[in-house]
Design a protein around this nucleic acid. Structure first.
Lengths: 108, 108
DNA sequence: TAACGATATATCGTTTAATGATATAAGGAG
DNA sequence: CTCCTTATATCATTAAACGATATATCGTTA
């Protein structure tokens, strides 16, 4: 998306959403990509470019943090408490979006 | 979202999603904006720029179509059958996304 | 009847998000 | 020793969304 300012307005794009979900448990970048593919049965995948740019954004917003960094450059990230709360709100927001659509669809 | 090609990959951005939802029943552009604000209790709003650019995209993808056009330039749009099916798939996709997050959260 | 707010459509240029391509390097399997 | 997988990272491009702005009509009300 695009010009969304999603973190400012309290919304998560699909990419940020899945990265945050996968970081409920600490893991490093490459594992995040693999985890998302696994979780979604290859329906959703994120390349390295999307991932590292999004990680920077999530770090800046303090929704995730650096968990550890080993000598071999492997950086492990994990969601912060703020990030978990943010995600929970986002889940609620998305549930409401589904209700809106289902109400509008009615019997269709 | 941004560089998403969402209509190609079978995904709807929030903006496209809400416009499509509001066009389950035919209405013109301005009413779409007001309907979305009403439906979401002012939580989500779309300005004219986002709306008209998105309408063009949805028209091109044949998810919506021109329903009527009166002399006073008022153009009414409505979701196509293809659009309704697309929306239903999108609802399923979004439900799965919520499950993914709730599974990962576990007892949190 | 003039002014004003709400209704209504539309485009331009900019910002942000996501991505494709690409570069680099280490480890293990064959 | 070669190749695939793992692993991190950036650059330039494309796409989505938006702010600002322009224009015009309609109904109310002062």
């Amino acid at each position: 998306m695009p010009r969304n300012d999603s973190l400012e307005t309290g919304e998560l794009t699909d990419t940020s959403y899945y990265i945050l979900v996968s970081l409920i448990e600490a893991k490093h970048g490459y594992l995040i990509m693999k985890t998302i593919e696994d979780m979604t049965n290859q329906q959703f995948s994120i390349g390295p470019a999307s991932m590292y740019t999004t990680i920077k954004k999530l770090l800046a917003a303090e929704l995730i943090m650096l968990f550890s960094e080993s000598k071999d450059k492997k950086k492990t990230y994990v969601a912060t408490e703020k990030g978990i709360q943010f995600l929970k709100k986002e889940i609620q927001r998305r549930k409401e979006m589904i209700k809106h659509a289902e109400n509008a669809l009615g019997g269709l």
